[in-house]
Computed example of a mutant assay.
Amino acid sequence: MCVYEYINLPTRVHAVELFFAVHVAGGKIKIGSDPEHDPEHGINNQIITPVEYLDYSKILKLPFQERHRIFKYTASIENLKKLRGYIRIN
């Protein structure tokens, strides 16, 4: 659907996130391994610890400050689905 870029220069954080429209077809969601993971520290020292599928209604129930920025700027699932291309918000 779109590419979201986040840059925070004072903290030197740079993230590029890809957003896709998906639906659950079966199986179980599971945690992979972080690309930033240092193998020396073992599998239990991952940055990503929980993972779950959230539909839009569940996302809207999250406290505003805990939502990804892209959900703060889209008022509805229809609006979110219209996003295309490159989005950069600092």
Rank of each mutant, 00 (worst) to 15 (best):
C2M: 12
V3Q: 09
Y4N: 07
E5W: 04
Y6L: 01
P10C: 02
P10V: 05
T11E: 14
T11P: 03
V13H: 08
H14W: 05
V16H: 02
V16M: 07
E17K: 02
E17I: 03
F20H: 11
I29C: 07
I29T: 15
K30W: 07
I31A: 13
S33W: 06
P35C: 02
P35Q: 05
E36I: 08
E36C: 00
E36P: 01
E36N: 02
H37E: 05
H37T: 03
D38K: 05
E40P: 02
H41P: 01
I43W: 02
I43H: 00
N44R: 00
N44L: 10
N44P: 00
N45C: 08
Q46V: 09
Q46A: 09
I48A: 01
T49Y: 10
T49F: 03
V51R: 10
E52F: 15
E52V: 14
Y53W: 15
L54N: 08
D55G: 03
Y56F: 14
Y56R: 02
S57L: 06
S57R: 08
K58T: 09
K61G: 06
R69T: 14
I70F: 04
A75C: 03
A75P: 09
S76V: 05
K81D: 13
K81G: 12
K82I: 06
G85D: 12
Y86A: 01
R88A: 02
I89P: 07
